[in-house]
Structures are given as C-alpha cells and as structure tokens.
Amino acid sequence: MKIKKIPNLSVDCVIFGYDTNTKSLNVLLIKRYLKATTSDEVLVDDYVLTGYHIYENETLDEAASRVLKELTGLTNLYKKQFKAFGDPNRLMNEKDVLWSKHENFNFRTITIAYYFLLKTEDIDVIHNKHEAKWFPYTDLPSVGFDHKKIIQEAYEDLKTKCLHEPIIFELLPEKFTINEVQEVYESILGVTIDNRNFRRKLINKKYMIPLDEKQIGVSKRPAQLYMFSKNIYDKMVNTNFLINI
C-alpha cells in the first residue's frame, strides 16, 4: 500500500554541527535551485533547511528522524522538537511561491521544527546528492521560506538548553580537553569565558572523567583528556546542572 503524506503538515530540521578546526557552530543547509521551463532564467537559487511532509502512519519524531537519515545517513542523534511554525504567509515570498508551485506544495503548510546536534566531520557533504553544505551560524547565505527565522529560534533554544543540560558533549569527540569544552560553549553563547574559573568548575563535575591520556600530535604542551559519563550524569539529574560560566 502506498504511504500517504499529510499535504499541509511537515517537519523541518535544523542540523547544528560544531567544526573543531574553525571552532564554529555551523548549520547544514541544502541547495534550492529552479530554472524557468522556457528559458535559462534562474528563478530560485538559495538554500533551505532539510524537511518534508509527515506520513500518515508515522509520529512527528519518526518523521524528523527519517528526514535526517535521508540527508545524512545518521540515526540516534540528539534531537529536540522546539516549535511549530504556522504563519499563513510563511510560504508566500515570490521565490517561495514559484518553488511551491513547482513542487506542488500546499501554501498553508504548518511545520514542526526540530534541531539536531552532531560534529561536522560526521557527514560527507562532498558526495551528498542534495548539495548539502555547512555554513557558520554567524554567516548564513540567502535562505528560503521562513527558514532563517526557524534557525534563529533553534539557536536561541540551544543557547538556553546548553546551560542546563550537558548537550554540548554531542558536539565533541569522545575524548576531549577542557579547552575544547570551553571553545564549544564560547561558540554557542558568543561570549568569552574566563578560562581559570571555567576549568575549576568543570573538573569538579563528577561526570567529567579524567583519562590517563593526553593530546597527541600537537605542537604545544599536550593537555589532559577527559570523557563525559552519561551514566553518572543521569544519576545526578535531579540536581541543578546550571554550569554558571
């Protein structure tokens, strides 16, 4: 039996990735390109979030996970549903109207927005058929629909969330230094953090497990490596995590 999609209900996914080389928070976008049928005129040439209609036989979470997997091949990533967007005019920009007619979109589509967290190197963008590309959050290209607003609201939610839950470890390798943790916080929050105070507070967290290992392949003095213990954190979950950076 053919799976039916709900024509005016969709999910849109903000995929945040942290680049350890540039120390920047990035957003994964896909190319949106449309030429006129009777000429070589380019009607639409910009980027959008990945998203799609919800199928009648799936939950919202299942739809978001499906969309993520179709774009990245990844599953079981941290995700959060943070808001619904249903402005009657959200698809009525001139370029959006052209695209929606071409794709036979319902102009009164309501979307449920999610964001996901991962490391930029987890995705092979070079061979991605959707022409996916990472952009720094602070330097986004022209973005279609109301997706810039969705990205901005996802970012605001992420800033608040990272102060109360240890979700930034989703953006780090399994083994990391204290400086790398600080750099992720600074990238997300857009602030400079006092190094000594931050280090003192973080290493006192019981879920920060010091390893008998140090960095390798660095020109400077190698730093101590740590791991995050989700099991220990879960046992402490009733206490206030607020990191007070």
Results as ranks from 00 to 15, higher is better:
193 I>C: 05
128 N>Q: 02
208 M>N: 01
95 K>G: 11
144 G>R: 12
199 R>Y: 02
203 I>W: 10
189 L>Y: 08
83 K>S: 14
201 K>Y: 06
125 V>I: 13
159 K>A: 05
188 I>D: 04
210 P>V: 02
164 H>D: 10
169 F>Y: 09
81 Q>P: 00
107 F>K: 11
185 Y>T: 02
162 C>E: 00
114 Y>H: 00
101 K>G: 11
190 G>C: 03
158 L>D: 05
92 M>E: 13
99 W>P: 00
212 D>I: 01
137 Y>V: 09
111 T>H: 14
198 F>Y: 01
198 F>Q: 03
121 E>N: 15
163 L>S: 00
208 M>C: 03
211 L>Q: 04
146 D>M: 14
149 K>H: 06
205 K>G: 07
190 G>A: 03
180 E>A: 12
191 V>D: 09
171 L>A: 03
214 K>R: 12
152 Q>A: 13
182 Q>R: 07
86 G>Y: 15
118 L>H: 01
195 N>D: 06
87 D>P: 11
179 N>M: 11
116 F>I: 01
202 L>K: 06
163 L>W: 03
96 D>N: 12
176 F>L: 03
194 D>W: 05
89 N>W: 13
193 I>F: 05
177 T>Y: 07
117 L>K: 08
177 T>K: 10
119 K>T: 11
116 F>V: 01
158 L>T: 00
94 E>W: 13
199 R>V: 10
182 Q>S: 07
207 Y>L: 04
190 G>L: 08
203 I>N: 09
96 D>K: 04
110 I>H: 03
115 Y>H: 00
180 E>C: 07
149 K>C: 03
87 D>H: 15
213 E>P: 06
191 V>W: 07
180 E>V: 00
116 F>L: 03
182 Q>I: 03
135 F>A: 09
195 N>R: 03
101 K>H: 14
184 V>L: 01
109 T>W: 13
137 Y>A: 08
117 L>P: 03
168 I>C: 09
84 A>E: 15
91 L>P: 10
97 V>G: 04
114 Y>F: 00
146 D>E: 15
171 L>E: 09
204 N>R: 14
196 R>T: 11
187 S>K: 08
133 K>F: 10
120 T>K: 05
132 A>G: 12
187 S>H: 10
128 N>L: 05
192 T>M: 05
83 K>R: 15
129 K>L: 10
210 P>S: 08
173 P>T: 09
199 R>H: 04
167 I>T: 08
181 V>E: 02
84 A>I: 14
211 L>E: 01
119 K>W: 09
147 H>F: 09
131 E>R: 13
119 K>R: 15
186 E>A: 02
202 L>M: 12
91 L>D: 11
80 K>G: 04
170 E>D: 00
135 F>W: 02
164 H>Q: 14
85 F>L: 07
159 K>N: 07
163 L>G: 07
120 T>S: 05
107 F>L: 12
200 R>T: 12
132 A>Q: 06
201 K>M: 10
101 K>M: 14
210 P>G: 02
155 Y>H: 06
214 K>T: 15
212 D>P: 00
109 T>K: 12
156 E>G: 01
192 T>N: 04
88 P>W: 13
141 P>D: 06
165 E>P: 07
163 L>K: 13
200 R>W: 09
175 K>I: 11
204 N>Q: 14
215 Q>K: 09
201 K>L: 05
215 Q>Y: 08
105 F>V: 13
